[in-house]
């Protein structure tokens, strides 16, 4: 109901709650993989979903605030990656218009999956292959080969995470928005 128009107050609240979720999942929602030092960061699937549901402004701010708060609970903000997270939210949020309209109608097709994934791959590529390593070099003057390797690993792992988890969440969310009316009791 409240989704039909994007209410500015709802966006404010979504940014707050989304950032809180990002923080919690960032701390407790990492799943280790068989590749050393590489985790499935479930929090990026959440970021993708919220960016789609609440738009690019919410996406960019959830990435920024959520990542900052998560880092601050450890004590050290890592600014280059915070900005990269914000970029992920922003770019996926740009896909919001078309994808969300489809989801609100409870009509989640293969085309929507492709569209969502194109945006998320672009978002993760820009954020982790370009923004994060460049900022690492600019801010921290870290060795280029190190930061590009790290960016590559993080970007690839986030792409896969969002492709699997993000798509599943989007589909599951879409199903909860199915309109009533066609339901009959069975004997």
């Amino acid at each position: 109901m409240a989704f039909s128009k994007r209410n500015p107050i709802e966006t404010v609240v979504a940014i707050g709650i989304g950032s809180a979720l990002f923080t919690i999942l960032g701390r407790f929602g990492s799943i280790p993989t068989w590749i050393p030092d590489t985790n499935v960061e479930t929090t990026y699937a959440l970021l993708a979903l919220f960016a789609v549901l609440y738009g690019p402004l919410a996406g960019v701010l959830i990435g920024f605030i959520g990542h900052t708060l998560k880092d601050l609970t450890y004590g050290t903000p890592w600014f280059s990656w915070i900005i990269a997270s914000a970029a992920v939210g922003l770019i996926i949020g740009l896909a919001s218009g078309k994808v969300r309209a489809v989801i609100d109608d409870g009509d989640f097709s293969f085309k929507t999956i492709i569209r969502f994934n194109l945006y998320q791959i672009a978002a993760n590529a820009v954020a982790w292959f370009v923004i994060a390593p460049s900022l690492d070099i600019l801010i921290y003057a870290e060795p280029a080969n190190k930061v590009y390797t790290q960016g590559l690993v993080a970007g690839a792992s986030n792409m896969v995470t969002v492709a699997i988890l993000g798509t599943l969440l989007l589909a599951a969310y879409g199903r909860t928005r199915v309109k009533k009316g066609s339901l009959t009791r069975e004997a």
Binding site: R175, T176, R177, V178, K180, L183, R185, E186, A187
Partner: peptide
């Protein structure tokens, strides 16, 4: 719940 078994829970 038998008559509702193939309903979505959100309904």
């Amino acid at each position: 719940l038998h008559p509702f078994r193939s309903w979505p829970i959100s309904a």
